[in-house]
């Protein structure tokens, strides 16, 4: 968003530096249930981003003063590994990761049926192993798969994806170069069954028209990511054909 470059981010044919069209997202790969010690987990790759999410709980909430007698709370920790970016990231929570933890927890709170577990806490840990722009969306996408994998009652699974503007073009799912040298970045997360928005931020500047176009792109891409999330969960719990129960 800040720097300037002579790089042509979108060529005359509308092709981007990684060979995508303007409304194309990076390839997404999701695997559910990758960690045996967590109650639920997911591993996600979107382009060069690599994210691991783990869910514990519902379990007793510590510290006690955070307990809510009417519902469960969701505690989220988004953490970037020191080796996740090209310059070593100083480990530990910083202003950015605290913000992202908070917005992801709030997005997940909208879909998890927290009132079923009063006084409990559901802990979500998101580790960014490799970052290439769009990690908050990748983290949220992975976290919601991990929550479903943990068998936590929820209304829906949350997919998230960013749209933005670079080189004067509205683009879907910015990569690192487009994010660094672009004009705007708009991450979006929705509840697919109702098309409610649970996360929307904007960094940079766009006209209203460009914003509407970015939202349209991000909405349809979210529905595509949603299908991938569902497929990952169903693959994990696939039941061999022709099986019947003899309980």
């Amino acid at each position: 968003m800040s720097g300037h470059t002579d790089m042509v981010l979108v060529d005359k044919k509308g092709m981007r530096i990684d060979g995508r069209k303007t409304d194309e997202h990076r390839p997404v790969h999701i695997e559910a249930g990758v960690l045996s010690n967590a109650d639920g987990s997911a591993y996600l790759e979107i382009g060069k981003n690599k994210v691991l999410a783990a869910v514990y709980g519902p379990r007793e909430c510590h510290p006690r003063h955070l307990q809510d007698p009417t519902k469960a709370i969701i505690q989220c920790k988004y953490n970037m590994q020191a080796f996740s970016v090209s310059d070593r990231k100083r480990p530990g929570p910083d202003r950015r990761s605290i913000e992202i933890s908070k917005i992801i927890a709030e997005a997940l709170e909208k879909v998890v049926l927290t009132e079923l577990y009063p006084r409990a806490s559901i802990d979500v840990y998101i580790e960014i192993l490799q970052a290439n722009a769009g990690t908050r969306c990748a983290g949220l996408t992975a976290a919601s798969v991990a929550l479903a994998d943990a068998g936590i009652p929820m209304r829906d699974i949350v997919p998230a994806i960013a749209a933005g503007k670079a080189d004067g073009h509205v683009l879907l799912d910015l990569n690192k170069e487009e994010d660094n040298f672009g004009q705007a970045d708009v991450p979006l997360a929705i509840v697919p069954s109702t098309d409610e928005i649970v996360l929307l931020q904007m960094d940079g500047n766009m006209t209203r028209k460009e914003f509407d176009k970015a939202m349209d792109m991000a909405f349809s891409a979210c529905h595509e990511v949603y299908e991938i999330q569902k497929a990952a969960l169903k693959e994990r719990y696939a039941i061999a054909k022709g099986d019947e129960d003899n309980e």
Binding site: V111, L113, A148, D149, G151, I152, P153, M154, R155, D156, I157, V191, P192, S193, T194, Q229, K230, L233, K234, Y237
Partner: peptide, 29 residues
Amino acid sequence: VPGDLLDDSGMNAGSNAYVHNGKVYAGIL
């Protein structure tokens, strides 16, 4: 998976399901 449509022909929601706009959706994996 959570959010999957279970029924839209007016059946009742059983355990781990919820109703939205008259349709029944799954509430858990």
